[in-house]
């Protein structure tokens, strides 16, 4: 049945490339963002064995971190309230905001993204120390871990709402240029950047996971935590590294997502379903699988909303349908091995 499902996906893609090329391009861009998030999600699941429900909201938080670093704005956008701005921001760097090539932003965004990645990695590591490590020491069950992460998700979202308010924000407001691509398609320059950044970060994560000792230890722990301990692997160190890597991936995904759409506090929560669908589609705990899972979900979502009989509002239900189908037909994921 798994082979049938894979065939169905391949046929769908071939048809989509022929008939809905523009939607496929958008889907690849959105899919690359999903892929970054899903790789982090699947790693956290693999190493820590619980569903990290705060993943989407961590993504949103990191997007706001970058917004803070760029704009310095620390207040909500309410009428009658003066906007407070931090005295120093990344945008104060010499010509940090002058646009590069056809992009809508300068190198300041890259600096903010890198700093946000460090900050988010730090936040996730600190949250692990404060919350999850205590639960590990008490040998709490997976449900407790997941509910704790759900609590953190709500806390993060509320905190962002309190500080920056519910109104959507943007990193830049300048006109966005588009670029022509071969095969009669075009794409926004910013989206080309999103794709490039997502692929670069994925390659870096791949090198870390498959070429370094600690990365291999992460995969080993996802495979068999008991044997990892027996082999002398420092499991707490691997856990810290896992959170740091997930934080870095989430931050890049969050900033790219805000660049693709716009910032708002609901940004992460609505992504939770597609993220889990991507991770499960690729086989939970399998980073390469999660990458392709994210790409597939992204493209299917983008193509399905072009159907005339479906309102675009159903976009996220596509992920839900994929999730249910994969759980029914092939719960170990497209690339997983039946245990």
């Amino acid at each position: 049945m798994g082979r049938g499902l894979l065939l169905l996906i391949v046929v769908f893609f071939i048809w989509a490339v022929i008939d809905r090329r523009d939607a496929v391009v958008i889907g690849i861009v959105e899919g690359s963002i999903l892929a970054l998030g899903a790789v982090g999600l699947t790693l956290v699941y693999g190493v820590l064995r619980f569903a990290h429900f705060a993943h989407g909201d961590s993504m949103m938080l990191s997007a706001y971190c970058a917004f803070l670093l760029l704009s310095g704005v620390v207040t909500g956008n309410r009428p009658g309230v003066d906007t407070e701005v931090l005295p120093i921001t990344v945008s104060d760097l010499p010509s940090a905001t002058s646009e590069i090539w056809k992009f809508s932003f300068g190198y300041g965004l890259l600096v903010a993204m890198a700093l946000s990645a460090l900050l988010t990695a730090g936040v996730l590591v600190v949250l692990d120390r404060l919350v999850y490590r205590r639960l590990r020491r008490r040998n709490s069950g997976v449900v407790i871990f997941s509910i704790a992460s759900l609590g953190l998700a709500i806390a993060i979202r509320s905190w962002v709402l309190i500080v920056w308010g519910p109104t959507p924000r943007k990193y830049t407001t300048v006109v966005r240029h588009s670029v022509d691509l071969p095969f009669d398609t075009s794409i926004l320059a910013d989206q080309l950047f999103i794709l490039g950044a997502a692929i670069t970060v994925t390659v870096l994560a791949y090198i870390l996971l498959f070429r370094t000792k600690l990365g291999k230890a992460m995969r080993a722990m996802a495979d068999n935590p008991e044997l990892a301990r027996i082999s002398g692997i420092k499991t707490e160190l691997v856990i810290v590294l896992t959170w740091a890597l997930a934080g870095g991936l989430v931050a890049v995904a969050g900033v790219l997502l805000a660049l693709q759409a716009q910032l708002d506090p609901q940004l992460g929560f609505v992504l939770l379903l597609p993220l889990f669908a991507s991770a499960i589609l690729g086989g939970v705990g399998n980073p390469q699988g999660a990458f392709f899972g994210g790409m597939i979900v992204g493209v299917v979502q983008a193509v399905v909303v072009t159907f005339d009989f479906l309102s675009p509002g159903y976009k996220f239900s596509v992920a839900f349908v994929i999730l249910i189908l994969i759980l029914l037909i092939r719960p170990q994921g497209l690339f997983g091995v039946r245990q």
Binding site: K216, R219, A222, D223, N224, L227, A228, I233, V337
Partner: peptide, 15 residues
Amino acid sequence: ENVFPSLTIQENLEM
């Protein structure tokens, strides 16, 4: 459960 199934043989030994 005395091997890491998704790692290669060489990676198992490295671990």
